[in-house]
Simulated scan of single mutants.
Amino acid sequence: MSNRKIGMWLYKNGGGDKIGKKIIKKLKERDIDVLDDINLRHAIAKNAHIIYHGEEHRGEKLDKLDLFFSYNAGEQTLYQMYLYQALNRIIPMINTYDSFALTEDKFHTSFVLRNNGIKTADYKLCHRDDGHELKKIIKKWDKMVYKPTDGWGGVGLTKIESEANLDMLMPFLNQMDLRYFYVEKFINYDNTDFRVDIVDGKFVACYGRKASGTDWRTNVTSGGSVFIREANDEVVNIAKKACKATGVDIGGVDIIYDRDTEEYIVLEVNGIPAFATPEQEKMGLNFNNKKIDLIVDLIDRKTK
């Protein structure tokens, strides 16, 4: 009987290359072979097959794999995601394309979370021609955040603190030829968040992120810093519910505490939450091995 075989595309930076080797080694111990570094950017679809054309594994029919594990946020292309969707129609994926696409869209994520009883920031999605609605909202909310519905790392987030701010922003947004505007009520919080990692419905770890003194965003790519932070039961349960609602096998849930309403708010569900970097491991974030073991268990179960 031949071994099970999966494809994997895991980020290499920030210690990701070593993480990938550990995953491959543990899967090999379970008789699961891995085609590593399979970037769908280098694949073509031909009739009933998706064929890989990279330097390694050239000619492999990816639709014949037992599973594909995609875990690379920084190098995605529209072509790669299009084939991701097609491949998931034939074989199992981690995360599924549907859950990946959902969590990539901030409006759809908030919409689904709210309909599953999970508290998010109040939001408004309106057509680009309904700019007057935004003026009504800023008067009601006092402060709000404009968010691109896609993207990650805090890129494009704009805090709007007055109607004058909005008047300055609107011409810029109109130049971008957006079809719609998505805004959220600005939450009064302490400029820190919880990042809670969940794999296969199980709690992996929690750490905190803190915005820099000159910014309100906690994202590390926006100048935020990571610190050790313990999770409480309420935060963990909220994260598990958010991952279940969005359908992700692996999720990192960003949660803040609203000081006005005294409740926890889910800001985002990240379908590709990073492992701890070597620098973060030195400061005490030691969840990588637990996360690797849970991912290996998940792959093992999904390919049986």
Rank of each mutant, 00 (worst) to 15 (best):
H132Q: 11
K61R: 09
A45L: 07
S70K: 15
Q85P: 00
V235K: 05
V183T: 11
I23S: 00
L285M: 05
E133F: 03
Y182G: 09
F227I: 01
T158G: 13
T277G: 05
L102F: 09
I19H: 06
V155Y: 15
V235N: 03
D31F: 12
I38G: 05
Y11V: 02
E263A: 09
M144T: 13
T103D: 03
H49C: 10
G252C: 04
K241W: 10
F181Y: 12
L157A: 13
Q175L: 05
S2Q: 13
K159I: 14
M168H: 15
R229S: 00
Y79D: 05
W152R: 15
I250V: 15
L10R: 12
D37Q: 07
K302M: 10
A73I: 12
N88V: 06
K124M: 15
F227N: 03
I250F: 08
W216D: 06
D197G: 07
E55K: 14
I6F: 01
D129S: 05
V269N: 04
G271P: 06
A101E: 13
V204S: 03
L169P: 06
T158W: 09
K119D: 15
N288I: 08
K18H: 09
G59V: 13
T214Q: 14
R30Y: 02
F172Q: 15
D167Y: 09
G20K: 06
I6L: 00
D17A: 14
M170C: 02
I187L: 02
